[in-house]
Design a protein around this nucleic acid. Sequence first.
DNA 1: GTTACGCCTTCCAGTTACTGGAAGGTCAAG
DNA 2: CTTGACCTTCCAGTAACTGGAAGGCGTAAC
Lengths: 132, 132
Amino acid sequence: MNIGDAARKSGLPTKTIRYYEDRKLIAPTRRENGYRDYSIQDVHKLAFLHRARSLGFPLETCRQLLSLYEDQGRASADVKQLANGHLREIDSKIAEMKDLRDTLHALVKACHGDQRPDCPILNGLSGTERDE
Amino acid sequence: MNIGDAARKSGLPTKTIRYYEDRKLIAPTRRENGYRDYSIQDVHKLAFLHRARSLGFPLETCRQLLSLYEDQGRASADVKQLANGHLREIDSKIAEMKDLRDTLHALVKACHGDQRPDCPILNGLSGTERDE
DNA sequence: GTTACGCCTTCCAGTTACTGGAAGGTCAAG
DNA sequence: CTTGACCTTCCAGTAACTGGAAGGCGTAAC
């Protein structure tokens, strides 16, 4: 099938599909006219990539997951290890963002937000507070 | 002072400082030998940018914050509005990441992680589960 | 004087994962 | 034969840096 149909079935834009091919994640056959020709298996792989990416796995991790996906003799332990590594990264990112959110929230809360120029947010950012 | 000293005092790498100059966020004077010359005010601005960036404000928002920072007649309401917009974005990003984390966590938990090839994580990613 | 070292300069390229657009070929319908 | 929807490749841009190369400047030791 043509790239447009593969796009509709996998949920990925055609641009992205071509990009994945460039990055050697997928290699569809070509017709005589030069058009890419996607098999059902190709579409499954694209949909797999789509889901893995939407879970935030980096492309290189997606590449590893995809090769495990295609390896009938894989050990689920290998997959779990990749997923666990990613999970830990997500957790630390969430923690980092929460910290950041709390800091910003405290500044916003302290700001009266009126026509006067005095502003705890800017004071906080300028480092003129005692605790920084 | 030289860029190296400005870097040490502001906490930003010299590369980043030059980048900010390229993006017109700061404009130090130049000495006769071509070296950049940073004033105390410049260093304050760099430290301000450093803090604003570490709170996750995009550079363009930093630019606006910086101009408010320098505007003695600003209204704190304007600052608060910028900060609030950013806060909302952080909140939605955190919520998004939590969702993602929970989905991934569920997959990881369901995976026995041994030498067998059967793997709920890959099943989840391939979309062969009934609820996807 | 020159050598060494650490600073400084500019410019170019790479990172992540796409996304947009231009220029042009293909195909089916009317 | 033209229109419109496809498809192709290639180039450039995004955010915010980061690394490296090639070369100039400043100072101190030998």
